[in-house]
Write a protein that binds this DNA or RNA. Structure first.
Lengths: 262, 262
DNA sequence: TGATAATCGAAAGTAAATGAAAGTTTCAAG
DNA sequence: CTTGAAACTTTCATTTACTTTCGATTATCA
């Protein structure tokens, strides 16, 4: 590997490191130093910087992939991950919706897939309440779907709206079903998300809906993010993919959640 | 490298930089300085300006492509009529905004141009209240701009939010300046728009702002739409293009409006 | 518990970025 | 045609960021 092109930019090198760690499941300091033909000290600096951003996990002598999305990753990146599973989950979730319903769609990459699946069907009347900009854009063009958007401060990393205004508005609404996209779901910690404001809003969404459906790809199982939304018992249905961990699913079922795998 | 071409315009050069970054996946400051035969300091200024608009990501010694916006974003904003005029009007309007301000941006194709012009400038703090989805998307990526979105029912034809929820939320806000995109403006009928709900919301926007700036291309002058927003006297400033009818402008001035033509 | 590998810290060299001052260009008025 | 303001550029000095080398220190594991 002759890496003597005009010399990599620092960020490029770090992106490559993350890639390698994700791909191989691991990487050693020596290995990386040899690959880029730089000193181990610099590699260590890189690893430390990446670990600070939770892009990887630091170990003695090397690095491992980061556990998963408990950190606040931009939507554009989340979208790329587990895209196929999310599509299937979205389609399964959309089947739970009946014509005439009022539903709440949380923001998030998985719930955007629900919106896309909803577009495929023919509706005579459907009301969708959402705080996600992209969900509103997906559904806005469908005449038979009434889209009500919660107002509030725009949270750029997820293109969603949060804050008191959204909460106040939500308090006046009520819906058949909530589809909640979760960032972490764990038997002990319950349902969690990285942003406290988002968590507060999500908790209110649960109160506003008669039934709560959590949608998440299997990588979220067993993860915990900073802010707690609710305990598992607040959920009625969970939809995830077939790679989900059996023990975690059992905990979900014991909490009274109907689990569906696609 | 023909040195006798009339020297690239700044915007042209920046466009080429973005192209190169997208194409090659990277670009270094040195490389770019050599390509355009200008100093590295200027290239750095370019990169900083582009990074501010989230067009690229800045790194040491160069730049990398910006992480792609969400997959298939329907950002295909319908190319409006009178696009050139609207762009100029947008830029003139943006000049009225000072750092630290709180402004209200109505939805509409002309106000989207104001948002784009705002992106070009450097802000340390700016709060934008809007009911337009595309405006929120334009400004969402700029960290120094706080975007507050009014909630409400999505009106598909204009991708804007209207209704009681938006009105209620707006009633609790106050701003230095409102930029109102109007569909009709006429000496007798005043400022008008086709949708009654939109008109009601716009009227509240006027009340929430200390100063109201109407923006419209000259084709709107003398037009009347269904719903009246306010009389001419409610406006403080009007920005339109140079093709505007002189008699109509006189009526505006007589109503106490400061008229600016671009 | 040692032996060994890995990490940390400080010093030093180099590339890149920043800030300030001064010179240009552009563009719109007078 | 001239003037003036605002936006661009450049040069030059200074500051910051990144990288390496070389000991000292701290984990890890047989």
């Amino acid at each position: 590997m002759s890496e003597n092109t005009p010399r990599l930019l620092v960020e490029e090198r770090r992106r490559l490191i993350v890639e390698q760690v994700e791909r191989d499941g691991r990487a050693t300091v020596e290995q990386l130093a040899a690959r880029f033909a730089i000193s181990t000290v610099t590699i260590r600096a890189d690893l430390e910087a990446l670990a600070r951003n939770a892009a990887i996990v630091r170990t003695h002598g090397g690095a491992l992939p980061a556990p998963a999305r408990t950190a606040d990753t931009p939507l554009s990146i989340k979208q790329a991950r587990h895209a196929a599973q999310k599509k299937r989950i979205g389609q399964a979730a959309a089947k739970l919706v009946a014509d005439g319903d009022t539903i709440i769609l949380d923001s998030g990459s998985t719930t955007v897939e629900i919106a896309r699946a909803l577009r495929q069907r023919r509706w005579s009347a459907l009301t969708v309440v959402t705080n996600g900009l992209y969900i509103a854009l997906e559904l806005g063009a469908i005449p038979a779907i009434r889209v009500m958007m919660l107002g509030g401060l725009l949270r750029p990393s997820s293109d969603s709206l949060v804050g008191p205004a959204a909460e106040q508005m939500l308090a006046q609404l009520s819906a058949q079903r909530l589809f909640l996209g979760v960032d972490g779901i764990d038997a002990e910690a319950g349902v969690t998300t990285p942003d406290p404001q988002e968590a507060a809003l999500n908790a209110l969404m649960i109160r506003a809906a008669r039934e709560t459906v959590a949608v998440f790809d299997s990588s979220k199982l067993g993860q915990r993010a900073l802010s707690v939304i609710a305990p598992l018992s607040a959920l009625h249905v969970a939809i995830t993919d077939s790679a989900a961990d059996a023990a975690q699913l059992r905990a979900l079922r014991e909490a009274g959640v109907r689990v569906e795998q696609v």
